[in-house]
Amino acid sequence: MYSLKVSNLCKQYTETYLFQDISFELHPGEVMAISGWNGSGKSTLLRVIAGLVRPTTGRVEMFFKGESIAREFRRRFVGMVAPAFSLYEELTALENLEFFCKVRGIGYDRESCLVIMEQIGLSESAGTLCRNYSSGMKQRLKLAQALLHKPPLLLLDEPGCNLDSKGMEVVENIIADQRRSGMSIIASNERREVDYGDRVINLSK
């Protein structure tokens, strides 16, 4: 139903190319992994795909039943987790999810949010302010936020960041679940996370 087409993507800062000529297509059920050294542009590539950063050249197109989705709307079809992202620390975990439900226009359903909280292992601390969360708990909540609208495209930038072994199981389950009907792109240096990908783009080359 949904598909992603990345064509000749290039990002340049001053005179340095972060990455050049990145092209691939992604279809439902597929997982793409992006690896590379620190500073090779993995996170920037994900931000470009999400529509948060404009590429220097090239195109990112998302299709729904063969019709292209405009860039400004593409963001809403994307769920993204990144170490640089934060959620609202002055709100509780459940209030954060409530806000993102409402602002995404999917309607707030407390029960559905509690189910997601259970899936990521935070059901017992749903009413705790996020500022009191550990870094691993915050990472889990970021995953919940990204899954809230069941996005066709899931972008995971270092998804295992700060997570313990149980947290990594949660990530594995999320990727397996997404594989059933959606697309995923994982950017990481961790061997275990890169191995989730059916295909790998190495930006170090």
Binding site: R76, V103, R104, I106, E111, H149, K150, P152
Partner: peptide
């Protein structure tokens, strides 16, 4: 959880309801 993909329901939201949130 509701059936189907929630993403299809975003059309029902308005600028005002998002702004109020």
């Amino acid at each position: 959880m509701k059936g189907g993909r929630w993403i299809t329901e975003t059309g029902s939201s308005t600028y005002l309801s998002e702004a109020v949130a």
